[in-house]
Computed example of a mutant assay.
Amino acid sequence: MKYILFIIITLTAIFSFSQDKEKEALLAAKKANNYVYEGNNLINEDDFVSAEKEYRKAISEQGTTVAGIYNLGNSYIKKGSYEEALYRLDQAAKIATSKVEKHKAYHNIGNVLMENKKCKEAVEAYKNALRNDPSDEETRYNLGLAKICAEQQKDKEDDKKDDKDKDKKDDKKDQEKKEGDDKKDQDQKDKGDQDKKEGDDKKDDKGKPKDEKNDKGKGDEKEKQQPPQPRPGQMSPQQVKSLLEAMNNQEQKVQEKVNAEKQKGYKIKTEKDW
Rank of each mutant, 00 (worst) to 15 (best):
I4Q: 12
S16M: 14
E24A: 15
E24V: 15
E24G: 14
L26D: 09
A32Q: 03
N40C: 06
S50G: 01
S50I: 06
A58K: 12
S60M: 10
S60Y: 13
Q62I: 14
Y70L: 08
N71E: 07
A85R: 03
I95H: 04
A96W: 05
V100F: 11
V100S: 10
M114L: 01
M114Q: 01
M114D: 00
C119L: 07
A125L: 03
Y126C: 00
Y126V: 00
L130Y: 03
L130N: 03
R131W: 05
N132S: 11
N132K: 08
S135K: 15
E138C: 05
L143P: 00
L143Y: 00
Q152M: 02
K154D: 01
K156P: 02
K173G: 08
K177Q: 15
G180Y: 10
D181W: 14
K183D: 00
D193Y: 03
E198L: 12
K202Y: 02
D205S: 07
E212S: 10
D215S: 14
G217V: 13
G217E: 15
E221K: 08
E223Q: 06
K224H: 07
Q229L: 08
Q239P: 05
V240R: 11
L244I: 06
A246C: 11
M247H: 13
Q250R: 10
K257W: 11
K262Q: 08
K272G: 04
